[in-house]
């Protein structure tokens, strides 16, 4: 019985991601160096453009995180194993954090470059709607005290919400392309040094995400263990 409670049900992910700590300690200063010293300053936008490296990396991570919420939700409904629910919930929390980073760094860049904080452009609008969907997911979780019920309900919402993301994206894109919109800054070309700096940032953020995901799952499992131990103690 004690064994069953204290067992870590998903040791692989936790063990592997724990090893990401030291690479991250090195990668973060390196990525800052790459962004501010190694990569050249953009000609027209100047220093503001530097925010792009972290902004886009955060954008990639939140899409990855929301994708994994979907996977975790489907896996939970099929297997009914608690681990998958914890996995989906942890990924959703991190996704919302990285999505918020994207949504705040965007306007900081947009104000000096476009002259406005916000525009109802396709990508901005769909990101905001996705953020709202996953905030709703977290609010749903916070409002169901019973674990099994919470897991089932949020898995259903996680699946329906994720299916909505591509439809939201395309509908907003079509909706916006039918209206005049401000010209997006920057073309497809990236300076090779800038590109390398960008890849380093992308790697750093992705590792950071997985590292935090592992820690979040570990924490959730410690909480579960604590509650079940408390319950058993109370019964005695």
């Amino acid at each position: 019985m004690d064994q069953a409670i204290l067992q870590v049900p998903n040791p692989m992910l936790i063990k592997i991601t724990r090893n990401f700590f030291y690479p991250l300690v090195i990668l973060f200063p390196v990525s800052l160096y790459m962004v501010f010293v190694y990569a050249p300053e953009e000609e027209t936008m100047g220093i503001v453009q530097k925010i792009f490296y972290y902004h886009v990396s955060a954008g990639w991570v939140f899409l990855l995180a929301f994708g994994l919420v979907f996977l975790g939700s489907v896996a939970f409904l099929i297997t009914q194993r608690q681990v998958w629910d914890t996995f989906a919930a942890s990924s959703a929390e991190l996704g919302v954090v990285f999505c918020s980073i994207s949504l705040t760094t965007g306007p900081i860049w947009a104000k000096p470059v476009w002259g406005i904080w916000w525009t109802w452009d396709a990508r901005l609008t769909s990101t905001l709607v996705e953020w709202l969907i996953y905030v709703a997911y977290l609010m749903l979780r916070a409002n169901v005290p019973e674990p099994t019920k919470r897991a089932n309900l949020s898995a259903v919402f996680g699946i329906l919400g994720a299916l909505d993301v591509p439809i939201v994206y395309f509908s907003i894109r079509w909706w916006r392309t039918q209206h005049p919109q401000p010209v997006m800054g920057g073309g497809g070309y990236l300076d090779p040094q800038m590109r390398l700096a960008f890849y380093v940032c992308l790697l750093t953020f992705t590792l950071l995400y997985f590292f935090m995901l592992g820690r979040r799952i570990e924490l959730a499992q410690a909480q579960e263990t604590l509650t079940s131990l408390k319950r058993r103690w109370a019964r005695k």
Binding site: A136, M139, L140
Partner: peptide, 15 residues
């Protein structure tokens, strides 16, 4: 909770 769950998901229908 219903409007909070419902409104962001029906955005494509609304548009």
């Amino acid at each position: 909770l219903l409007p909070i769950l419902f409104l962001p998901v029906v955005v494509p229908v609304l548009i």
